[in-house]
Design a protein around this nucleic acid. Structure first.
Lengths: 124, 124
DNA sequence: ATACAACTTAGAGTATGCTCTAAGTCAAGA
DNA sequence: TCTTGACTTAGAGCATACTCTAAGTTGTAT
């Protein structure tokens, strides 16, 4: 019977390094990770889901400080639902804005690429 | 008669700080900026266009090191057209991948938001 | 004349987010 | 028994990209 995943196993699953996972725990992003009798970390599927959510927030550009704020609200309990929702909605807004910005800038870069291509034809 | 824009004016136009513009010049991203007789920088419209292009590359996530590589190729002359084109195409590919990633992760965050909203209704 | 604001340079300092190290524990296999 | 490898911790180190500072110069307004 398996008591949980090791930090390496979680690293493999999530694509984060074991160093980073421990670091996230240390700064408070992953509260209450279980330990084996020898002190080694043991992760549940719930933990893995949470870490994947953290990764999702990070990959979309949320700073660690804001992720910590989210965790803090979570630990304060149900009274912080509105605030957590607001935080996520603000983040969603930023992601959408970033996607729009990227699309706009992509066009500009493609224009430059096309300029190079037109030159390429003439100069061989 | 105006001999060119000052660093502050370029900062206002491009949205970069004067510090950053000087820094970019120092590391080699903005070659050959003209000087007034007193040694002050004077920018042409061409310079501004180039700085805006740099900003575009940065905002889409290109590291300074790669931008420097692009500048280096540019200064080597016409023989580097292919390489410059390849560099921009690789970058375009990364931007597209990033947009796709953001769209995917955005969905996940929206799912979480919707989960919060459904709770919100029940708990008042 | 003098104060002020904007500029110059080289270099130091900061923010963020990892990433690695050192010293030690522990369990399993040769 | 001894080695190997994975784990633990606290803390140091590093990469990136700015951002600021200090000391000095210059041009303009009062």
């Amino acid at each position: 019977m398996k008591s949980g995943l090791t930090v390496q196993e979680v690293a493999e699953r999530t694509g984060l390094s074991a160093h980073t996972i421990r670091y996230y725990e240390r700064i408070g992003l992953i509260p209450s990770v279980g330990r084996a009798p020898n002190g080694h970390r043991r992760y549940t599927e719930t933990d893995v889901g949470w870490i994947e959510f953290l990764k999702c927030l990070r990959s979309t550009g949320m700073p660690l400080a804001e992720m910590l704020r989210y965790v803090a609200l979570q630990q304060e309990g149900e009274g912080t639902f509105q605030e957590r929702l607001a935080l996520l909605e603000a983040h969603r807004h930023r992601i959408k804005a970033k996607i729009e910005e990227l699309n706009k800038l992509l066009e500009r870069i493609e224009a430059k690429i096309n300029w190079y291509r037109s030159r390429e034809v003439q100069s061989g």
